[in-house]
Simulated scan of single mutants.
Amino acid sequence: MGMPMDDIHAPTVPSGPTSRLGGERDISKLSMNELFKAKEQIEEELKMLSEILQSHGVNMETPLTTFDGYPRDDLDIAQIRTTRARIIYLRNDHKAIMAKVEQGVHAYFADIRNRDTCDKSTGDQQPPPTTHDATEEAPVDQSGLVETPFAKVSSVADGSPAAQAGMKVGDKIRSFGTVNWMNHENLRKISEVVQSNEGMPLIVKVARSGEPSQALVNHTLQLTPRRNWGGRGLLGCHLVPL
């Protein structure tokens, strides 16, 4: 009789930040457009792989052994292990891309601040901000898509992932990961993106009323859906369609 395979549920992938992107192309040389496209491709594949696991009635944590340590004969263990390994592989890629996107976002806002500083130091007079509805002068993303708000934050739980990301009641959602006003399908797509990106940061763009003029100010948040934060759901906030 052979020894029980206690670690059969462990994916056979290299440890560390090894990523298929590292072997195919240098992330540092990708434009923001290319980064977002790669991010979307990875998220689509992760969604498909998650559905494969669900079809087997398991997730990333489901044990593949019996109580006494032997492989379960009711599961296709080989396919499940391969699928789990690919998910881990892609999550490494996604984290690398999101880190680069975050750097790009910080660089973008740093450039804006530097320009403002230069304008003030040279005496250039900038027109005062005007109060406007974000649907009238909505920002444009890297692909040229107008980011019109399509949802509003109606509640945010204390200590939740949404609260930690800086989300506030009244924020108007302009984009949520890959979801925007054109494809949100009555917010259903947000739920799909959240479920398929548990534990991975999502870029969320919001428009928020500023003080004291109440003009809408645009903010870019990094929100990581997760469980076990002490409340219900993966976000800890409630959104309603506009």
Score class of each variant (00 low, 15 high):
Gly57Phe: 13
Gly123Thr: 00
Ile112Ser: 12
Asp111Phe: 00
Asn59Gly: 12
Ala78His: 13
Glu102Arg: 14
Pro127Val: 14
Thr131Gly: 12
His94Leu: 14
Thr117Cys: 00
Arg115Ser: 14
Val105Asn: 09
Asp124Pro: 10
Arg113Ile: 02
Ala78Arg: 15
Ala78Asp: 14
Gln54Thr: 04
Pro71Asp: 00
Ala96Met: 01
Thr131Met: 10
Ile77Met: 10
Gln103Thr: 11
Ile97Pro: 04
Asp68Gln: 10
Gly69Glu: 06
Tyr108Val: 08
Lys120Ala: 15
His56Pro: 07
Asn92Pro: 04
Tyr108Arg: 10
Tyr108Glu: 14
Ile97Asn: 05
Lys120Thr: 13
Pro63Thr: 04
Pro127Glu: 13
Asp68Pro: 10
Ile88Asn: 08
Lys95Met: 08
His94Val: 04
Thr130Lys: 15
Met60Leu: 15
Thr122Gln: 11
Pro63Glu: 12
Thr83Arg: 06
Val58Arg: 09
Ala85Arg: 08
Thr62His: 14
Met60Arg: 11
Pro63Val: 12
Phe67Pro: 00
Lys120Val: 02
Arg115Phe: 04
His56Leu: 08
Asp73Gly: 15
Gln103Gly: 14
Asp111Met: 08
Ala134Ile: 14
Gln54Asp: 13
Arg113Lys: 15
Pro71Thr: 03
Leu53Lys: 03
Met60Lys: 02
Asp74Ser: 09
Thr65Ser: 13
Asp73Thr: 15
Leu64Pro: 08
Asp124Ala: 07
Asp124Arg: 00
Thr131Asp: 08
Gly57Gln: 01
Asp93Pro: 06
Ile80Arg: 10
Asp124Leu: 09
Val101Ile: 09
Leu90Ile: 03
Glu51His: 00
His56Asp: 04
Leu64Cys: 02
Ile87Thr: 07
Tyr70Val: 07
Asn59Thr: 02
Asp133Tyr: 02
Met98His: 01
Asp111Gly: 02
Ile112His: 06
Gly57Leu: 02
Ala107Thr: 06
Pro127Met: 12
Thr130Gln: 15
Leu90Gly: 01
Tyr108Ile: 08
Ile77Gly: 10
Asn59Pro: 15
Asp74Gln: 06
Thr135Cys: 06
Asp111Lys: 05
Arg86Gln: 12
Ile112Val: 05
Tyr108Pro: 05
Ala78Met: 14
Asp111Thr: 09
Thr62Tyr: 14
Pro129Ser: 12
Met98Gln: 07
Lys95Glu: 07
Gln103Ala: 12
Arg86Asn: 01
